[in-house]
């Protein structure tokens, strides 16, 4: 199993709160996804990327350092985005009231696993 898929599977096993997740490079290069439906996956990737860009733009305007994680709570659930090296990012959705710190920790672990696997040559797209 390629590293990104493995990393996402581990994330779902570790974090019971996570419902869906996508691992993406740059704008919309999907490395791994939990979605069975391609249409829903595309919506998730497009919207999550727009959220990441909006947050980055605002952060830059405020003179902040690079954005590493983003958490947004909405009425029906939460969206988490973790940014990594090589413009690789991981987005996940959860239900309401997740344990934010734990979800972010698990997502960072999954992203690191995916990137390390790629660096070791376990995965090449």
């Amino acid at each position: 199993m390629p590293a990104p898929e493995e990393a996402l599977n581990e994330l779902l096993e570790m974090s019971a709160s996570v419902r869906q997740a996508v691992l993406v490079r740059s704008e919309n290069d999907v490395l791994a996804s939990t979605f069975a439906d391609k249409g829903s996956e595309e919506v998730m990737v497009k919207t999550a990327r727009a959220m990441l860009d909006a947050a980055r733009g605002e952060s830059k305007a405020m003179g902040r350092t690079a954005l590493s994680q983003l958490f947004v709570e909405a009425a029906s659930g939460c969206v988490f985005i973790v940014a990594g090296e090589k413009d690789t990012w991981l987005a996940a959705t959860t239900g309401t009231d997740p344990t934010v710190g734990l979800v972010l920790y698990d997502m960072n672990t999954a992203l690191r696993t995916a990137l390390e696997g790629e660096a070791e040559g376990a995965y090449s797209k």
Binding site: V43, V72, V79
Partner: peptide
């Protein structure tokens, strides 16, 4: 961001 998250959760 909250509006976008709402849309994402609704559609995806």
């Amino acid at each position: 961001l909250t509006g976008m998250a709402d849309e994402l959760l609704k559609q995806a």
